[in-house]
């Protein structure tokens, strides 16, 4: 780790959604602010800035992490993935996203990106995830609109679809 100075901006290189990026930030800048206001990827939302609501969840080296509790400087050399990377192409939704749309897993959509990033990581790591695993992972997120039932339903449907896909491909 290079020696850093609080009064200065320091360069950070990392991989963001599959591309190498270079940005500059003060030491105290949060990852959420770097992504949103320096790089301009506003899909990651900020709901509480103290790690409770989960809206800002991104994946750092494959693991879900709160961007509001991560300093931008901490992702040097890491692989960061945000909601903008989930869809296979701009005109198509990923199976998880499509399931959210089909099952009305969102209303205002503000908490949704964080939830998608958590569930995406879960379904990648645990393709056999069932209702309780999904609820467990979802419990790190607050949603004020849906009452959660349709989110669970969407996640279960996406998991099921993913398993079918894998069986077909196998």
């Amino acid at each position: 780790m290079p020696r850093m100075n609080a009064a200065q901006r320091h360069g950070i290189e990392f991989t963001l959604n599959g591309r190498k990026v270079r940005a500059e930030a003060e030491n105290r800048m949060l990852l959420s602010d770097l992504l949103r206001h320096e790089i301009g990827l506003t899909g990651t939302h900020v709901g509480c800035e103290h790690g409770v609501c989960g809206a800002c969840t991104v994946q750092i080296d494959g693991k879900p992490a709160r961007a509001c509790l991560t300093l931008a400087q901490q992702v040097r050399g890491s692989d960061v993935r945000t909601v903008e990377a989930l869809a296979p192409d701009p005109a198509e939704l990923s199976p998880l996203q499509a399931a959210f749309r089909r099952h009305h897993g969102l209303q205002c959509g503000f908490c949704t990106p964080g939830i998608l990033m958590s569930l995406d990581a879960l379904l990648r790591e645990r393709p056999d995830a069932g209702r309780e695993d999904i609820r467990e992972h979802l419990s790190g997120h607050l949603c004020r609109c849906t009452g959660y039932a349709t989110i669970v339903k969407a996640a279960l449907a996406a998991a099921e679809e993913q398993r079918k896909e894998e069986t077909t491909n196998a």
Partner: peptide
Amino acid sequence: HTVERVEDAGLLTGRGRYIDD
């Protein structure tokens, strides 16, 4: 009838435009 929402594609892909965006 319950049709899919026209709002959702943008919101699910991080393309929502909330005030801070």
